[in-house]
Design a protein around this nucleic acid. Structure first.
Lengths: 219, 219
DNA sequence: CGGCAAGGCTACCGGCGAGTAGATAAGCGG
DNA sequence: CCGCTTATCTACTCGCCGGTAGCCTTGCCG
C-alpha cells in the first residue's frame, strides 16, 4: 500500500497559529493535570502537543504564562457550562439542582480540566492560587445567596444568614469532594449525584432516614 | 550588656540526634506546607532547621524519605488527636460530633500539619498519594458506618446504605472544606464549626429553616 | 588529660529542565 | 517563479537543586 505519498509527513504539517495554540493548550492541561505544575516539564508538553519546545515559547510565553492561560481557559469553560444549565427565575432549590447537574456533567466530560483547576492550581503559590480562590469564593457566595434566599422565604432568616458563609463553604466542599469520588464511579449519573447532595444539604439526613426524599418538582 | 558570654554561640550547638531529627522534621513540615513538595528545597529546610544539609541526609535520608516521614508523623498526630476525643459507646451522632470537634481543634492548632496532609501530599504522585488516599478512605468508611448505623437504628436502612458511600465522601469533603474556611476565621470555635456541620448533614437545611436546631444532648 | 566516637560543616558534582540562538522550509503575493 | 513572511526545527546555554566526599570539633569516659 503506497500510503506514504498520500499521507503527508507525520510531523510538522504546517498549521495556522490559532490551531497550534489550541493543541498546545490541550496538551498543557493534560500534562499539568497529571503531574502538577512543578513536576510537569515543557519537553513533555511539547511532545504531547506534537510540536517542538520553541513553539510554545513563541506562541504562549513562559511556563508560568502557559499555566495561567490553561487555567483561565478551563475556568471559563467550567463557568460557562454551569451558567448554561441554570435558569435564574426558578426557586432556589431548583437553581441549585440544575447548577449541580451541570457541574457534574462537566466534571465527567472534562475530568482533566477539573483536576487541573481543583488540585493543581493551588500548588503554585501567588497569582494563580489567588485567582482560583477568588473564583471559588464567588461560587460560595452564590450558593450562600441561594441559601439565604430560601431561608428568608420561609421566615427566620437570622440563623441561616449568620452561618450562611460557613455552611456554603461546607456545601461547596461537599460538592467538590463528591466530584472527586464520582471520578472513580463513572456509572453514577450526574442526576443521581446532584440528588444525593440535595438530600444531604436541603432535606438532611434526618428527613432521609424518616423516609422523605427530595426530588425535582418539574423538569 | 555582656550576654555573649552567657549565651552559647548562636549556631550549631551540639545536640543529641533525636532532638535534631525532631527539629528537622518540624522544619520540613513547615517548608513543605508552604511550597509543596517540588518547590521546597532541601537548602531552605536545612536553613529553617538551623543545621546544614548533610545532616538531613545522614539522619533522615533523601528528600522523598524526608517527605514520607513528615507525612507519617503528621498523619499519626491527626489520627491520635481524633481518637482521643471520641467515645465509641455513644450514639452515632454524638460520636460524629466529638470527632468533628477534635478534628477542628487539631486543624486550628497544627495548621501546617493539616496543610501538608490535605493539600501537598497529593501533589507527589505514587506511594504518598496512595497512602493519604487510603487514610481518607478509612475516614470515609468510618463515617459511612456511623451513617448506616443511624439509619438502620431508625429503620429503612435501604436508601441510606445505597447512597452511603457517596454521601460520606461528600460529608468528609464538607468537613475538610469547612476546615480550610475556618483557617481564615480563627474566631469561630471548634464547637461552632462542628455544630454547623451537624446541622448541615444530620438535620439538614430544611429542618434548620423550620427552626429545629441540633445540639449535643449531653456533655 | 588524651583519645575517639558522634555531631557538624564547607565545598563541591552532575543532571535536569527552563529558556534561546540561529538555521530551514513551506506557502502566499506578486 | 521569486522573494518574504511565518511556521518550525535542532542544538545549545545556564542556573538551580538533590545528593555526596572529605574534613573539622566537641565533649564524654576512662
Amino acid at each position: 500500500m503506497p500510503d506514504e505519498a498520500q499521507r503527508p509527513p507525520e510531523r510538522a504539517r504546517r498549521l495556522p497559529r490559532a490551531v497550534r495554540e489550541r493543541q498546545i493548550l490541550d496538551a498543557a492541561v493534560q500534562v499539568f493535570s497529571r503531574h502538577g505544575y512543578h513536576a510537569a516539564s515543557m519537553d513533555e508538553i511539547s511532545d504531547v502537543a506534537g510540536v517542538s519546545k520553541p513553539m510554545i515559547y513563541t506562541y504562549l510565553g513562559s511556563k508560568e504564562d502557559l499555566f495561567g492561560k490553561s487555567i483561565q481557559r478551563e475556568a471559563t469553560r467550567l463557568l460557562e457550562a454551569i451558567q448554561a444549565g441554570v435558569q435564574p427565575d426558578l426557586p432556589p432549590d431548583m437553581q441549585l439542582w440544575h447548577g449541580l447537574r451541570s457541574f457534574y456533567r462537566f466534571v465527567a466530560e472534562y475530568r482533566e480540566s477539573w483536576t487541573v483547576l481543583h488540585r493543581q492550581a493551588l500548588t503554585v503559590g501567588g497569582a494563580f492560587a489567588a485567582e482560583i480562590t477568588a473564583m471559588r469564593t464567588r461560587a460560595i457566595e452564590l450558593v450562600a445567596a441561594l441559601v439565604v434566599s430560601a431561608g428568608t422565604r420561609k421566615g427566620l432568616g437570622e440563623q441561616a444568614e449568620f452561618s450562611g458563609a460557613g455552611l456554603s463553604a461546607a456545601l461547596v466542599g461537599a460538592a467538590e469532594s463528591l466530584a472527586d469520588w464520582a471520578l472513580d464511579h463513572p456509572e453514577i449519573s450526574d442526576g443521581v449525584l446532584a440528588s444525593w447532595l440535595m438530600n444531604l444539604v436541603w432535606l438532611g439526613f434526618n428527613d432521609l432516614v424518616e423516609g422523605a426524599v427530595w426530588k425535582p418538582s418539574e423538569g
